[in-house]
Nucleic acid binder design. Structure first.
Length: 477
DNA sequence: TCGCTGTTGTG
DNA sequence: ACAACAGCG
């Protein structure tokens, strides 16, 4: 009987796991997780992703245990080496895994496939992190799409492979193989700031599925109308499960389609959700075709952009949610507290950093990477380039989000601000959107001393807007 | 003033 | 866990 190592990565789940499914059909399954921090640098530098991974691993270990299978955990700085050792220890003859699409990891994996083939191991790897493999979609001239809408139209015509079922009977190895304890990977922070993440998130496949069903029953019926309003909490809250691979994109895609068939009246709502999944798809598509987008602007002309260079103080205010713009601050504090930020507020806060403060988007991307529980290399890079106007299908340079107007429009009564910026909670709308314009008596009654209990704006909106337009006009075209 | 020690704050 | 620091002999 075949002995197959199933190398688990950002796919700690049983549903839609082609490598695990195929292995379960063909022989003995040896599931292995390898923590290789030198290779997975973008994961390593993200304490929130590591926290998620820790708990995700626990969840999977438990699930596998109930099926009589033990998860082997190893660490090392060279996955190839670890895998070779495991082949020797287990006598495995095959290695199956699901592809990872991050450029550096993809190259590493190709090398691993080659090296293991050389020593007579049968290898298979499967595309599962994308709806459709990025190389499969090209425009009429044979190149990659640069604009989302045509890409999306094309994607809808593609055949998207159906998700794989959960393997029902897994055969494990009789022999006991050494494994580390999950704790030994040191994924959790030393000081227990992660306690607050526990209040908002439960990692793992099971809770991902729970979140999906609760989204279907509670919010999807008003998704299209409500998703832009941060206080309604109408978003799906599925992003960390997708980013970690606890949920499969294809499983979600097909589940959404099935739901749409059963609820004709919600077609528009479900389509709005599918479109969001397609944005994720588009970001991996772009990362595949332009691996440098995580570091460099996609548009060459931006290499010379006059970004601010003395940024420390402003960066610090932004990170801490002390810019003096309530909506921006509310978002930044939600991020710090919960590891997530409402999508619309991400756009406002990111735009503020890039356009009002003229700070290079890569600085913002680094902070999001550090703090986001749903950090995703491709999504993050694309999102920031979109906001900065440095990507292909980006916000035009002259679109500068007005943090006050956005606040008035999407948080009209200031409830979201009140929740995350408690020192403003006694100030009513409309002044909660722009406290610096409130009369002295109003501020006093609300217990606010600008510059003390809540900062004055660190930059003037009108001045910043003109400055940004001027800076952007230098590289236009 | 030095060095020890307990406290505080920290992603 | 660890560094920075205040308080103390």
């Amino acid at each position: 009987m075949k002995k197959i190592i199933v190398w688990l990565r950002r796919d700690l789940r049983l549903h839609d796991h082609p490598a695990l499914w195929e292995a379960s059909q063909q022989g003995i399954v040896i599931p292995v997780f390898i923590w290789s921090k030198e290779e997975e640098t973008h994961l390593h530098s993200s304490p929130t992703s590591k926290w998620w991974l820790h708990h995700s691993l626990y969840a999977l270990q438990k699930t596998l245990f109930t099926k009589g299978i033990s998860l082997i955990i190893r660490s090392g700085n060279n996955s190839l080496h670890v895998l070779k050792t495991l082949v020797e220890e287990t006598g495995a003859d095959s290695l199956y895994f699901n592809e990872r699409m991050e450029p550096d990891l993809y190259l590493r994996d190709q090398l691993i496939l080659k090296e293991l083939n050389l020593i007579g191991i049968k290898t298979r790897c499967y595309c599962t992190n994308q709806l459709v493999h990025p190389s499969q979609i090209v425009n009429k001239s044979g190149g990659p799409y640069k604009v989302f809408t045509p890409f999306y139209k094309r994607l809808l015509k593609e055949f998207i492979p159906r998700p794989f079922p959960i393997p029902s009977n897994l055969r494990g190895l009789n022999q006991k193989i050494d494994s580390l304890f999950i704790e030994q990977l040191d994924l959790l922070p030393i000081i227990n700031w992660d306690q607050k993440l526990h209040r908002h998130w439960i990692p793992g496949e099971v809770w991902g599925i729970t979140q999906w069903t609760s989204f279907l029953s509670k919010s999807i019926s008003r998704y299209q109308q409500d998703r832009d309003y941060p206080y309604t909490e109408a978003s799906s809250a599925l992003s960390p499960y997708l980013a970690s691979g606890d949920l499969s994109i294809r499983a979600l895609w097909y589940a959404a389609l099935r739901f749409k068939e059963q609820h004709d009246e919600l077609e528009g709502q479900v389509d709005a959700f599918l479109r969001q999944l397609a944005w994720r798809e588009f970001s991996y598509y772009q990362l595949w075709h332009h691996p440098s987008i995580t570091e460099h602007p996609l548009r060459e002309s931006f290499r010379e952009f006059p970004w601010n260079s003395h940024i420390e103080q402003k960066m610090d205010s932004w990170k801490k949610g002390k810019t003096g713009y309530p909506l921006v601050d509310a978002g930044m504090r939600q991020l710090w507290e919960t590891g997530t930020m409402h999508n619309r507020i991400r756009m406002v806060a990111a735009s503020f950093l890039v356009k009002h403060l003229l700070i290079n988007w890569t600085e913002g991307a680094k902070w999001f990477q550090h703090t986001l529980v749903d950090f995703d290399l491709a999504n993050n890079a694309m999102g920031w380039q979109w906001i900065a106007g440095t990507g292909f299908d980006s916000a035009p340079y002259f679109r500068i989000f007005n943090p006050i107007k956005q606040s008035e429009q999407f948080d009209q009564d200031g409830e979201y601000i009140r929740r995350w910026v408690p020192e403003l909670s006694k100030l009513s709308a409309p002044y909660i959107h722009r406290p610096w314009e409130a009369q002295a008596e109003l501020l006093k009654a609300a217990g606010i001393v600008l510059g003390e209990t809540y900062p004055n704006p660190i930059v003037d909106h009108q001045m910043a807007r003109e400055r940004a337009l001027k800076a952007y006009s230098t590289i236009k075209g």
